[in-house]
């Protein structure tokens, strides 16, 4: 937990950003181009009093987090497979490279052809997370000190105990780092997918609508909500990870 001084510093930094934003807004002088922070915050507060907004945020969260969690599981499974089998690595690594290198928009447009608009954000989040978790975890498995594994075998540890006591603690730091980084990517690409796929009950749809009606304040308010949710999720994840590391 940050100290009191840490909190004061954070609050000061936030104030500096808000002041710069306010100054820029005053300079531009048009709410349509750059709304002021207080107009945005007022709009956000109004949005949060509406039950609908919570429903949209909740469903967006559900889609993206489902994709994220499925991506983490698939990433780990693929990492185990490719770390153990050179053939599997040779066979599957081009797929990882393709997914990493291709623009996310291409996948969103393709996914729209195959899937319903509600599933597209889930699929895109999944697709962004898989290669990151996969690559980091596979690398960590391969880098696990074979001398420790050998020690475990000589002393008669079962395969399960070798995995639990040697591989898992060895892989955990890189795996958890990949989970944190990929959460941000899942969130950004998931919302982008919503803006293109337009599932009706979603933050992405609201953003699109705001842009269509040129309601810049709404656009800013929804974006602020996205940023807040993303930061909240990351905070929860890091907190959870600290616990996992302690218990491991």
């Amino acid at each position: 937990m940050p100290s009191k001084r840490g909190w004061i510093q954070k609050a000061l930094i936030a104030l500096i950003y808000i002041a710069v934003w306010e100054a820029a807004s005053l300079l531009v002088g048009k709410e349509l181009l750059l709304p002021s922070p207080h107009a945005t915050l007022l709009r956000l507060a109004a949005l949060l009093t509406q039950g609908e907004s919570w429903l949209y945020a909740g469903l967006t969260l559900l889609r993206i987090m489902s994709g994220y969690l499925l991506g983490v599981v698939a990433g780990v499974l693929l990492a185990v497979l490719t770390a153990r089998s050179r053939f599997a690595e040779a066979l599957l690594s081009p797929l990882r490279s393709i997914v990493k290198a291709s623009p996310v928009t291409s996948f969103i447009l393709l996914a729209l052809l195959w899937l319903s608009s509600n599933v597209v954000p889930l699929f895109i989040s999944f697709l962004m997370v898989v290669p990151m978790v996969w690559a980091a975890t596979a690398e960590a498995i391969v880098q696990t000190d074979v001398r420790l594994v050998e020690m475990g075998r000589v002393f008669g540890l079962s395969n399960w105990r070798i995995v639990k006591k040697i591989y898992v603690p060895s892989v955990l730091p890189q795996f958890l780092a990949a989970c944190t980084t990929s959460l941000g990517f899942a969130w950004k690409s998931g919302v982008a997918a919503e803006i293109i796929a337009l599932p009706t009950r979603s933050i992405g749809y609201r953003l699109y609508e705001s842009k269509l009606r040129i309601e810049t304040v709404d656009l800013f308010a929804w974006t602020l909500l996205i940023v807040a949710l993303s930061m909240l999720l990351e905070w929860l994840l890091i907190k959870g990870m600290r616990r996992i590391r302690r218990d491991a």
């Binding site: 001398r147 420790l148 050998e150 020690m151 475990g152 000589v154 002393f155 008669g156 540890l157 006591k165 040697i166 603690p169 060895s170 491991a248």
Partner: peptide, 25 residues
């Protein structure tokens, strides 16, 4: 046979205490 080994290197789990390293086996 059930061999017990002291390897040339210590081969201790870096994330485990001395007690955890020994009680591992």
């Amino acid at each position: 046979r059930k061999p017990a080994v002291v390897f040339q290197e210590d081969r201790l789990l870096p994330w485990a205490t001395a007690l955890e390293n020994v009680s591992l086996i």
